[in-house]
Protein backbone atom coordinates (compact mmCIF):
# COMPACT_ATOMS: atom_id res chain seq x y z
CA UNK A 1 0.00 0.00 0.00
CA UNK A 2 1.35 3.36 -0.89
CA UNK A 3 1.59 5.67 2.05
CA UNK A 4 2.97 8.67 0.29
CA UNK A 5 1.09 11.85 1.03
CA UNK A 6 -0.45 13.52 -1.97
CA UNK A 7 1.07 16.85 -2.86
CA UNK A 8 -0.54 19.15 -0.38
CA UNK A 9 -0.27 22.65 0.86
CA UNK A 10 1.69 23.06 4.05
CA UNK A 11 -0.72 22.67 6.95
CA UNK A 12 -1.13 26.29 7.92
CA UNK A 13 -2.20 27.17 4.38
CA UNK A 14 -5.10 24.71 4.36
CA UNK A 15 -8.59 26.18 3.97
CA UNK A 16 -10.84 26.61 6.99
CA UNK A 17 -14.48 25.53 7.04
CA UNK A 18 -17.23 27.84 8.21
CA UNK A 19 -18.31 25.56 11.05
CA UNK A 20 -14.83 25.39 12.49
CA UNK A 21 -14.26 29.10 12.10
CA UNK A 22 -17.53 29.88 13.88
CA UNK A 23 -16.65 27.57 16.76
CA UNK A 24 -13.16 29.04 17.07
CA UNK A 25 -14.60 32.54 17.24
CA UNK A 26 -17.21 31.53 19.85
CA UNK A 27 -14.62 29.70 21.94
CA UNK A 28 -12.20 32.61 21.74
CA UNK A 29 -14.87 35.10 22.79
CA UNK A 30 -15.86 32.85 25.66
CA UNK A 31 -12.24 32.82 26.77
CA UNK A 32 -12.17 36.60 26.69
CA UNK A 33 -15.40 36.69 28.68
CA UNK A 34 -14.01 34.42 31.38
CA UNK A 35 -10.83 36.46 31.51
CA UNK A 36 -12.88 39.63 31.71
CA UNK A 37 -15.03 38.19 34.50
CA UNK A 38 -12.00 37.74 36.75
CA UNK A 39 -10.90 41.32 36.12
CA UNK A 40 -14.46 42.63 36.54
CA UNK A 41 -14.80 40.91 39.91
CA UNK A 42 -11.81 42.86 41.18
CA UNK A 43 -13.85 46.03 40.67
CA UNK A 44 -17.31 44.88 41.68
CA UNK A 45 -17.00 41.61 43.62
CA UNK A 46 -16.56 41.35 47.36
CA UNK A 47 -14.41 38.23 47.35
CA UNK A 48 -10.93 39.05 46.15
CA UNK A 49 -7.84 37.77 47.89
CA UNK A 50 -5.47 40.46 49.03
CA UNK A 51 -2.01 40.76 47.58
CA UNK A 52 -0.54 41.73 50.93
CA UNK A 53 2.09 39.40 52.29
CA UNK A 54 5.36 39.63 54.16
CA UNK A 55 8.31 37.40 54.85
CA UNK A 56 8.43 36.72 58.55
CA UNK A 57 10.30 34.47 60.92
CA UNK A 58 7.94 32.00 62.61
CA UNK A 59 9.02 33.03 66.12
CA UNK A 60 8.23 36.68 65.41
CA UNK A 61 4.77 35.78 64.18
CA UNK A 62 4.25 33.58 67.25
CA UNK A 63 5.23 36.46 69.56
CA UNK A 64 2.68 38.77 67.95
CA UNK A 65 -0.01 36.14 68.11
CA UNK A 66 0.71 35.43 71.78
CA UNK A 67 0.74 39.12 72.65
CA UNK A 68 -2.65 39.55 71.04
CA UNK A 69 -4.01 36.50 72.84
CA UNK A 70 -2.83 37.78 76.17
CA UNK A 71 -4.32 41.19 75.63
CA UNK A 72 -7.74 40.24 74.31
CA UNK A 73 -8.43 36.84 75.84
CA UNK A 74 -12.07 36.62 76.95
CA UNK A 75 -12.30 33.00 78.09
CA UNK A 76 -11.01 29.49 77.49
CA UNK A 77 -12.74 27.03 75.25
CA UNK A 78 -14.36 24.37 77.46
CA UNK A 79 -11.66 22.30 79.12
CA UNK A 80 -9.28 22.42 76.15
CA UNK A 81 -7.29 25.32 77.57
CA UNK A 82 -7.35 27.05 74.19
CA UNK A 83 -7.86 30.79 74.66
CA UNK A 84 -10.76 32.51 72.93
CA UNK A 85 -9.55 35.92 71.82
CA UNK A 86 -11.74 38.85 70.92
CA UNK A 87 -9.76 41.72 69.45
CA UNK A 88 -11.63 44.98 68.79
CA UNK A 89 -13.52 45.34 65.54
CA UNK A 90 -11.43 46.84 62.77
CA UNK A 91 -8.14 45.72 64.28
CA UNK A 92 -5.38 43.35 63.26
CA UNK A 93 -6.03 39.77 64.34
CA UNK A 94 -3.54 36.93 64.32
CA UNK A 95 -3.97 33.20 63.90
CA UNK A 96 -1.09 30.80 63.60
CA UNK A 97 -1.03 27.32 62.14
CA UNK A 98 1.22 24.59 63.45
CA UNK A 99 1.16 20.84 63.71
CA UNK A 100 -1.63 20.18 64.75
CA UNK A 101 -3.66 23.23 65.67
CA UNK A 102 -4.83 26.66 64.60
CA UNK A 103 -4.21 28.97 67.53
CA UNK A 104 -5.95 30.77 69.20
CA UNK A 105 -9.73 30.66 68.79
CA UNK A 106 -11.04 34.00 67.55
CA UNK A 107 -14.29 35.74 68.27
CA UNK A 108 -15.28 38.31 65.66
CA UNK A 109 -18.28 40.55 65.23
CA UNK A 110 -20.64 40.24 62.35
CA UNK A 111 -20.34 42.80 59.53
CA UNK A 112 -17.16 44.27 61.00
CA UNK A 113 -13.87 44.27 59.13
CA UNK A 114 -10.72 42.68 60.46
CA UNK A 115 -7.21 42.44 59.11
CA UNK A 116 -6.51 38.76 59.52
CA UNK A 117 -2.85 37.70 59.68
CA UNK A 118 -2.02 34.06 58.96
CA UNK A 119 1.25 32.18 59.00
CA UNK A 120 2.66 28.73 59.70
CA UNK A 121 5.18 27.75 62.33
CA UNK A 122 6.44 24.61 60.61
CA UNK A 123 5.18 23.11 57.33
CA UNK A 124 2.49 24.18 54.87
CA UNK A 125 -1.08 24.06 56.13
CA UNK A 126 -4.46 24.66 54.57
CA UNK A 127 -6.80 27.21 56.15
CA UNK A 128 -10.28 25.96 55.26
CA UNK A 129 -13.00 28.02 56.91
CA UNK A 130 -16.25 26.04 57.13
CA UNK A 131 -19.12 26.15 56.50
CA UNK A 132 -18.65 29.39 54.60
CA UNK A 133 -15.98 27.62 52.51
CA UNK A 134 -12.95 29.87 52.15
CA UNK A 135 -9.69 28.07 51.48
CA UNK A 136 -6.19 29.53 51.78
CA UNK A 137 -2.70 28.10 51.73
CA UNK A 138 -0.52 28.93 54.73
CA UNK A 139 3.24 28.85 54.29
CA UNK A 140 5.98 28.95 56.91
CA UNK A 141 8.00 32.13 56.60
CA UNK A 142 5.22 34.06 54.87
CA UNK A 143 2.61 36.16 56.57
CA UNK A 144 -0.61 36.58 54.61
CA UNK A 145 -2.75 39.59 55.52
CA UNK A 146 -6.30 39.80 54.31
CA UNK A 147 -9.34 41.83 55.24
CA UNK A 148 -12.35 39.72 56.17
CA UNK A 149 -15.88 40.73 56.99
CA UNK A 150 -17.91 37.89 58.54
CA UNK A 151 -21.42 38.08 57.12
CA UNK A 152 -23.24 35.58 59.33
CA UNK A 153 -23.12 34.79 63.02
CA UNK A 154 -22.30 31.31 64.18
CA UNK A 155 -19.57 28.84 64.96
CA UNK A 156 -17.04 28.33 62.17
CA UNK A 157 -14.43 25.61 61.95
CA UNK A 158 -10.98 26.04 60.50
CA UNK A 159 -9.99 22.69 59.03
CA UNK A 160 -6.46 21.99 57.83
CA UNK A 161 -6.79 20.88 54.23
CA UNK A 162 -3.15 20.65 53.29
CA UNK A 163 -1.59 17.38 54.41
CA UNK A 164 0.86 18.30 57.17
CA UNK A 165 1.72 15.07 58.95
CA UNK A 166 0.32 12.01 60.59
CA UNK A 167 -2.24 13.80 62.80
CA UNK A 168 -3.24 16.23 60.03
CA UNK A 169 -6.89 15.16 60.28
CA UNK A 170 -7.04 16.29 63.91
CA UNK A 171 -5.89 19.82 63.11
CA UNK A 172 -8.89 22.03 63.65
CA UNK A 173 -9.42 25.61 64.79
CA UNK A 174 -12.44 27.73 65.43
CA UNK A 175 -13.79 31.22 64.81
CA UNK A 176 -16.92 32.52 66.50
CA UNK A 177 -18.92 35.22 64.81
CA UNK A 178 -21.24 37.11 67.16
CA UNK A 179 -23.65 40.00 66.83
CA UNK A 180 -22.01 43.32 67.44
CA UNK A 181 -24.87 44.52 69.69
CA UNK A 182 -23.90 42.10 72.47
Amino acid sequence: MALTSPEKRIWWNEPLSKIELTWIVIAFLWGLTMFGTMVYWHFTGEQNLSNEAYRIRPEVFAERTEAQAEKYKVREEGDTGIPVVKPPAGSDVYMLARRYEFWPILELEKDKQYRLHLSSMDVQHGFSLQPTNINLQIHPGYEMVLTVKPNKTGEYSVVCNEYCGVAHHAMVGRIYVVDSKK
Binding site: G126, Q130, S157, V159, N161, Y163, H168, V172, R174
Partner: peptide, 22 residues
Protein backbone atom coordinates in the same frame (compact mmCIF):
# COMPACT_ATOMS: atom_id res chain seq x y z
CA UNK B 1 -19.57 21.73 50.45
CA UNK B 2 -16.06 22.09 51.77
CA UNK B 3 -14.80 18.54 52.45
CA UNK B 4 -10.99 18.50 52.53
CA UNK B 5 -8.82 16.40 50.27
CA UNK B 6 -5.98 14.27 51.70
CA UNK B 7 -7.86 13.86 54.95
CA UNK B 8 -8.24 10.67 56.94
CA UNK B 9 -11.25 11.45 59.10
CA UNK B 10 -14.11 13.80 58.31
CA UNK B 11 -15.74 12.96 61.65
CA UNK B 12 -12.75 14.63 63.37
CA UNK B 13 -12.94 12.10 66.19
CA UNK B 14 -9.33 12.75 67.27
CA UNK B 15 -9.62 16.54 67.18
CA UNK B 16 -9.90 18.62 70.35
CA UNK B 17 -12.72 20.69 68.80
CA UNK B 18 -15.81 19.40 67.09
CA UNK B 19 -16.59 20.12 63.46
CA UNK B 20 -20.09 20.13 62.09
CA UNK B 21 -19.93 18.21 58.81
CA UNK B 22 -23.11 18.12 56.71
Amino acid sequence: IGIARRHWDITFSDAPLTVDVP
